[in-house]
Design a protein around this nucleic acid. Structure first.
Length: 278
DNA sequence: ATGGTCGGTATCCGA
């Protein structure tokens, strides 16, 4: 018997997709259970797994309720994974971003009642400390990465697609604790925020700002270097969930799991989740 | 103006 889906008005369940920079999957794999308890995502995109594929903790992921998974890791750095309750199909013809082979992107297709959806999981380079591509190769890499994303999605407008991840850029004035003080800090410089918004305008809709007014402060990351992250509240919104424009009207709700910043051992990022009527 | 703390892995690099 088919389950009738009647949309947001009836409070119908949709597809929940979450993203979390876990900052070591092996160290924090046990926290996946807490995330599942709080958010119940159908699909979870992880960044900074920091685990080579041959050491991927399959059992911890399966125990958290994700029988389907795709992962791409390397020693010590980077690493992304997509964990799913539903069967997923890898999208194989994706670029080797900046020709570095450094495990910053995965894409999958998932079948839902209305058809197929594509899910992109990105971990954009942080960019180092000096916001000048001539002086800082890491910043040049970051800008090049965003340019290549813009080219990739510019070839044809994205459709029935969700783009999530740690984009390492806080694009809006109220995505940082002090717009004025962060204008020359990597993650909020005009060259980055303009590049990210150009990418977004190529067919994506910010699924979190869809629900939270632009004038309201909104963060997903708080530095480890503050004695009391909650009291100082010097956050930035580095983690994002976007949907292609054709899915904007299907958005049902969002969640930013701020309390996860106190989970032990804590990641400096917290999970972000969106739910889409499918 | 400066330095502050993490994780992986090695006594430093990246964030």
């Amino acid at each position: 018997m088919a389950i009738k889906r009647t949309g947001a008005a009836a409070g119908a369940a949709g597809l929940r997709i979450a993203t979390w920079n876990i900052n070591s999957l092996r160290l924090r794999g046990g926290l996946l259970n807490a995330l599942v308890k709080e958010l119940r995502p159908d699909i979870l995109c992880l960044q900074e797994t920091k685990v080579p594929d041959d050491l991927f903790p399959l059992e911890a992921v399966q125990a958290a309720g994700f029988p389907h998974m795709l992962f791409r890791g390397m020693k010590a750095y980077n690493g992304v994974a997509i964990l799913s309750r539903l069967p997923i199909t890898p999208v194989d013809d994706t670029p080797d971003w900046c020709a570095r082979g450094d495990c910053r992107h995965l894409a999958v297709r998932v079948a839902v009642p209305s058809g197929a959806l594509t899910v992109h999981n990105f971990y954009v380079p942080a960019g180092g400390d000096v916001p000048d591509p001539k002086l800082n190769d890491k910043f040049a890499h970051k800008l090049q990465f965003i340019r290549e994303m813009t080219e990739f999605f510019g070839r044809e407008p994205p459709r029935r697609s969700v783009l999530l991840g740690d984009l390492n850029i806080a694009p809006l004035e109220h995505d940082v604790w002090s717009h004025r003080q962060l204008l020359d800090v990597v993650s909020h410089t005009p060259v980055e925020t303009e590049a990210l918004l150009t990418l977004q305008k190529g067919g994506f809709h910010d699924a979190v700002r869809h629900f939270v007014a632009e004038g309201e402060k909104l963060y997903t990351w708080w530095s480890y270097r503050n004695r009391d992250w909650r009291a100082s509240d010097r956050g930035r919104r580095l983690d994002h969930a976007w949907v292609s424009d054709d899915l904007a009207s299907s958005l049902l709700r969002h969640a930013i799991l701020k309390d996860a910043r106190d989970w032990q051992p804590a990641s400096d990022h917290v999970p972000v989740c969106v739910e889409i009527s499918v």
